[in-house]
Design a protein around this nucleic acid. Sequence first.
DNA 1: CAGTGGTCTAGACCACTGT
DNA 2: CAGTGGTCTAGACCACTGC
Lengths: 238, 238
Amino acid sequence: MDARLPLYQRVRDDILGHIARGEWRPDQPLPTEAWLSENYEVSMGTIRKAVNTLVQEQILYRMQGRGTFVRRPQFRDSLFRFFRQLDQDGETVVPDSRVLSCVLETPPAAAGKALAIEGQDGSIRLDRQRMLQEDNWVHEQIWLPAERFSSLLQMDVAALGNLLYPFYEQYFGEVVASARETLTIQLPDAALAAFLEVAADQPVVNIERVACSYGGRPIEYRISRGRADRFRYQIDIS
Amino acid sequence: MDARLPLYQRVRDDILGHIARGEWRPDQPLPTEAWLSENYEVSMGTIRKAVNTLVQEQILYRMQGRGTFVRRPQFRDSLFRFFRQLDQDGETVVPDSRVLSCVLETPPAAAGKALAIEGQDGSIRLDRQRMLQEDNWVHEQIWLPAERFSSLLQMDVAALGNLLYPFYEQYFGEVVASARETLTIQLPDAALAAFLEVAADQPVVNIERVACSYGGRPIEYRISRGRADRFRYQIDIS
DNA sequence: CAGTGGTCTAGACCACTGT
DNA sequence: CAGTGGTCTAGACCACTGC
């Protein structure tokens, strides 16, 4: 507790500590603002400012007349930030997905650099198939730091559901909070053309993604490839 | 002004109105909190709450001891995310641009809808050429509401510089603050293939952009088309 | 130095929830 | 009804800026 920090920040950090230690739990109410005000010996305005910052960070939520609660981490909102492919009607497409393989390997240079993998630390590579109405839609290669995800090798990856990010969070405590994507257009190699069932001179879209945690630490490096003629990508810039 | 809304929201909306109308401009200070408090006849706490929301929305920024300022939209940065070619050193290359024509026309359906052009109000259409080292790089069609941009028809559009958004701001007081882009891949029609000097079976990237002001009011509808093999698009998601 | 935003207090009244 | 968060006020003092 750094006494140089403003009061409301110290209160905010202390509240967050109670949550992190599991003393105040998801969907349960915090003590009332009046109680916090008395026990921290600060005014209610300062308590409100501290709680407000945590509400903004989506760690707490308020319900007027009932109380202030610890938020249960919601996968849904964060997930749909990362799906930018639309169908013809502008609706977000969430295809069915299946993990095809899971192996330990030395990452290629781009993946190793993106994940800041040093020396002899390896990576876990998943190959993944995304389908849309029985068609192979996208082929994905995913690299994860072996250091943090090693137990994946003992799991039945074929049983994984459509969404990997909730899975990362549930089993490894890794929350994807931001990502950088780079799009390019290329011609497929023979294997990819066969997988997508397109001619070798039909262009494919190449999406490279580096996904990071709240602190900006890299979690996942992913390359997704799909046929260009069905591709539609929308983004809001501000 | 809805009197049922909380005071701080009405103040926030009114401040935003001044910015949207260009009365309070980027990088210039707002009136002081004391002045706002007196003129809106609310307490400084309420003013601070209103200003805080706009700071969080990244529309204002504060500098202690100096004042509160209108943030200059970081939109120019995002411009260079598009159609950028990296040279050997990985540096961004900025294309030269030239406006080819400027006419009054009835907008096509998509442009009219995006710009909310009603009835007999027309649009001004610019055709624009973006070049990179003597090559035609991108062809752009741009629609603007005739109602707000009519004097463009009397201007020497060939003399316009590389960047249109600063020009909109300087001559029409229209500040582009956000945009939505949709990317697709298509085959070029004959005219576009000739312009880009590519074969008719070479895919092109199609970027549709709706650019809006602070208040979310549409300012510009733009379609940019360029050859896919040189395309590289990077975006940060959070 | 005067003027700005940054923090903090100690109240007030209102709107909503559950009993 | 009592208890919760939501809004709002009118001050106080501090930290920083520019002159």
